[in-house]
């Protein structure tokens, strides 16, 4: 049996700060295969970005400390790799895109320079990236990297790429810059793409274009994607699967249609209730009462229990187990799954 592209198992992460040590990721499980786009949704601070950054080991340590678990990329645990081995995976095996396209490109360098450096770094690990033999000279490699940069820019839809490769970032619009960043993330031919809120800073019309481009790239490059977002609309539009996070835990996950059409966990339901839609009555839109628990002294049981409408005394005793309510659809709430079983029976 081949191992999945990305398999995060029981990941626990703590962060030390002035006030104490916070248990910010408490047992994350996530499996991503090629051609899957996983949406990772949740409120600000729920740990979704930390999960993404952990895959590339970009969370500075200290203050971060991995307490338990594994992050396996094609069966290799990246947490066990040396810094040098990890660096070789970045850009080559794992591509990343971040939220704000205006600050993620270096303003002092031409975009071509930045693309070429990423391509050359990837080619150190795998000369095939540039379609060159291992003996190719410096000039030859540079020329090949530049040609590849132009090809990638064309691929992500930058018009007149051969001329624009020598422009500076400020000469592009926000949407175009995000396309440049996608080209940069994909130039080393990674199998896994982590996209951290890639469309949040963009106009709605541009958002749709970028998401469409991402979907296209998944097919073209045979990739798996983790798409981190707080926008369920983006998830519905783009993702094949979704994992809902709350306070450092995944409360519900599964195929996107199953989770969004048949939400089971009370937090997922609350999240869906908070989305304005055309056919919702005035006044029906509900926020969620209460606030996210303090993670320095987290509640011992279910982290959502304090705000949960279904909470039972037993919920605060121990962390809830995940139960499959249908094929691949996992829910971490014994009360809700029990209720569902009773209803079906």
């Amino acid at each position: 049996m081949t191992s999945p592209l990305l398999e995060i198992r029981n990941l626990h992460l703590s962060m030390t700060s002035f006030e104490g040590s916070a248990h910010v990721l408490a047992g994350i499980d996530l499996t991503v295969n090629r051609r899957e786009i996983w949406g990772l949704v949740g409120e600000t601070g729920c740990g979704k970005s930390l999960t993404g950054l952990s895959v590339s080991r970009l969370v500075p340590s200290p203050p971060a400390q991995y307490l338990d678990g594994a992050i396996c990329l094609d069966g290799t645990d990246v947490l066990a790799l040396s810094d040098r081995e990890m660096q070789a995976l970045r850009g080559k095996r794992i591509g990343m895109i971040f939220q704000d396209p205006t600050t993620n490109l270096n303003p002092a360098f031409r975009i071509g320079t930045q693309l070429i450096d990423v391509a050359l770094a990837a080619a150190v690990r795998d000369p095939a990236v540039l379609d060159l033999g291992p003996k190719a000279g410096r000039g030859e490699r540079h020329r090949a990297a530049r040609a590849l940069a132009i090809r990638m820019l064309e691929e992500v839809g930058i018009p007149n790429a051969a001329a624009r490769v020598d422009d500076y970032p400020h000469q592009f619009s926000g949407g175009m810059r995000q396309r440049v960043l996608i080209a940069m993330a994909l130039i080393g031919r990674p199998n896994l793409l982590i996209a951290d809120e890639p469309t949040t800073a963009l106009d709605v019309s541009v958002q749709a274009q970028i998401l469409k481009l991402l979907k296209q790239m998944v097919v073209d490059h045979d990739m798996g994607v983790v798409l981190i977002t707080h926008n369920l609309g983006v998830v519905a539009q783009t993702c094949s699967h979704v994992a809902v996070m709350y306070a450092g835990t995944i409360v519900e996950s599964g195929p996107v249609r199953a989770v969004l059409d048949r939400p089971t966990h009370p937090y997922t339901k609350a999240l869906l209730d908070a989305i304005p839609a055309r056919n919702v009555q005035r006044g029906a839109l509900r926020g969620l009462p209460g606030s996210v628990p303090n993670l320095i002294t987290p509640p011992p049981g279910c982290r959502f229990a304090q705000r949960c409408p279904l909470a039972q005394p037993s919920c605060t005793q121990k962390p809830p187990h995940k139960v499959a309510v249908e094929a691949g659809h996992m829910v971490a709430c014994p009360v809700a799954t029990q209720a569902l079983e009773n209803a079906n029976a």
Partner: peptide, 25 residues
């Protein structure tokens, strides 16, 4: 800056990042 994180995330070596990209800025 964010662009330094991006450069690290895409596999550029610490030396290249510091002496080429960071130094110029």
């Amino acid at each position: 800056q964010d662009y330094v994180t991006t450069a690290r995330a895409l596999g550029l070596s610490q030396r290249l990042i510091i002496f080429k990209y960071v130094a110029r800025n």
